[in-house]
Amino acid sequence: MLHRFANPTRFLRFADIIQPWMAVLTVGLGAAGLYLGLFASPADYQQGESVRIMYVHVPAAWMGLFCYMAMAAAAAVGLIWKHPLADLAAKATAPIGAGFTFLALVTGSLWGKPMWGTWWVWDARLTSMLVLLFLYLGYMALINAFDDPTRGIKASSILVLVGVVNVPIIKFSVDWWNTLHQPSSVMRMDGPTIDASMLWPLALMAVAFNTYYVWVMLIRIRTEVAATKVRSLRMKQAHGS
């Protein structure tokens, strides 16, 4: 499986097939999730209408973490088996993950103003998401800091693996340091504690965010492959062959 799609031409053919499907799924599920979340679901008895922010905030936070893990897996594959496509996948994932993390922070802040009475609190979860955003930004800065693009990709792959070891440590340290955010109410061993009318839009939005990620990542990988081709053509021209 891994080696089958390591060939860029084969991968691009595969991407051509699934990319429109991902676009359709993202738009369809996103629209359904937003409709259910914004209109068809009840307001929370405690949080009122602002609970609706959660339908964007929670999936965005999940995706922020998921993208980092995906990036680390791709970076590991790229370092170990030297698959050029895995490197490109890691590179393509970083801005998307940073975007999701940023979205989670912004929506959390918008939610925090009416709920906690402040835009920002130095609470454990907020702080670890902020650190995660910095890890993304560091990765993106490092990947673009070299004149030779392959150097940048290798160095930043090592960085993202170091980051993966550190993410749980940072999470645990920040938890010790301070805690105010409510504990998770969906990802629990004894099943979700929220009502189905709220769980459905949340699940739809989560899937829509996932398909959005795959969709945009495919576009970005395609762009990277094209950019690599352009670069090697230019090199050939410059060497006057």
């Binding site: 650190v131 910095f134 560091g138 490092l142 550190n166 440590i169 940072i170 340290s173």
Partner: peptide, 10 residues
């Protein structure tokens, strides 16, 4: 600074 300061937090 951007790379290692976040890792120094713990």
């Amino acid at each position: 600074a951007l790379l290692i300061l976040p890792l120094y937090i713990p």
